[in-house]
Simulated scan of single mutants.
Amino acid sequence: MSTTHLIENNKLLVRRLYEDCINRGRPELLAQLIAEDFMASPGEKGASEFANGIAAVRKGFPDVRFEIEDLVAEGDRVAVRWTFRGTHGGPFAGTAASQASVTQTANVIFQISDGKISRAWVQVDRLGLLQQIGALPV
């Protein structure tokens, strides 16, 4: 497989994560995308922890939609800049549903190994999100 083809496949893998698994609510596809030994920068390990994180977001924001703003790849890394929008319609981070419309942004670098996502380094505006749902003062 050529390097260009491999990079395009890596980008498609990350796009499928957001569009199919999260936006369309199809967590059963995670086994195809996330390595069993996956590790995230906050310390989550394994595909099941990754699935738990997605479930928490979808529970707190049932109408969540991730929009990929930028998707760039080189070698075994894929960088994505995204915006998510949703309504705080369920519990999230210990805060009951506020029905607030929220927007969150993040930058994530994924590492791809053997055709699956094996690592993620996340820079997310969690403070802004918690302020929008009333969990923290503005």
Score class of each variant (00 low, 15 high):
A35W: 06
L33C: 02
D63C: 09
R24F: 04
R16I: 00
N9M: 00
P27W: 05
G115C: 07
A93L: 04
N10A: 12
H88K: 06
L130K: 06
E44D: 10
L136A: 11
P91N: 12
L71I: 11
G46W: 11
W82H: 08
V14L: 04
N23T: 01
V108E: 07
R81A: 04
E8P: 01
L12M: 02
A100E: 15
I34V: 15
A93Q: 08
P137A: 01
Y18L: 05
Q32T: 12
G115S: 04
P27D: 08
G115E: 09
G25D: 09
R85T: 11
K116W: 00
L30P: 12
R24E: 12
R77I: 02
R58Y: 01
D70T: 12
P42Q: 06
E74V: 02
L127R: 10
V102W: 03
L129I: 09
R126Y: 05
F84R: 10
K11L: 06
G89V: 10
V108K: 01
L17A: 03
A96V: 06
G94P: 14
G89P: 05
R58G: 01
P91Q: 11
G89E: 08
A31R: 14
K116V: 13
D70M: 04
R58W: 02
Q111S: 10
P42T: 10
I109W: 12
W121E: 01
I117G: 06
A55L: 10
R24G: 00
C21P: 02
L129Q: 04
C21L: 03
E49L: 10
I54V: 12
A97W: 11
N107A: 14
D20Y: 12
F61T: 01
P42M: 06
G89C: 05
R16K: 09
N52Y: 12
I68S: 08
V72I: 15
G128N: 03
G25M: 04
E69M: 09
Q131E: 12
G53M: 03
A106L: 08
R85H: 12
S118A: 15
G128I: 05
N10G: 07
D114K: 08
S118C: 15
G46N: 10
L29I: 11
F110T: 06
Y18N: 01
Q131G: 03
Q99W: 04
F84L: 13
H5L: 13
P137S: 03
Q123I: 13
L127E: 05
T105Y: 04
D20F: 09
S118D: 12
L71W: 00
I7G: 00
A73P: 11
L71D: 03
R77H: 14
N107H: 14
L29Q: 13
T103D: 05
I68V: 15
K59W: 00
R26L: 09
G25T: 04
A56T: 10
F84G: 04
W121A: 03
D37L: 12
Y18P: 02
L127W: 05
R16Q: 07
K45M: 06
T87A: 07
V124G: 01
R58M: 09
L30W: 01
R81Q: 14
E74S: 14
S2D: 14
Q104L: 13
A56Q: 13
H5S: 14
T105R: 15
R24T: 01
R126G: 00
R119Q: 15
E28P: 08
R126C: 01
L33D: 02
A31Q: 12
E19S: 00
D114T: 02
W82K: 13
N9L: 11
K11A: 08
Q99T: 02
L29M: 13
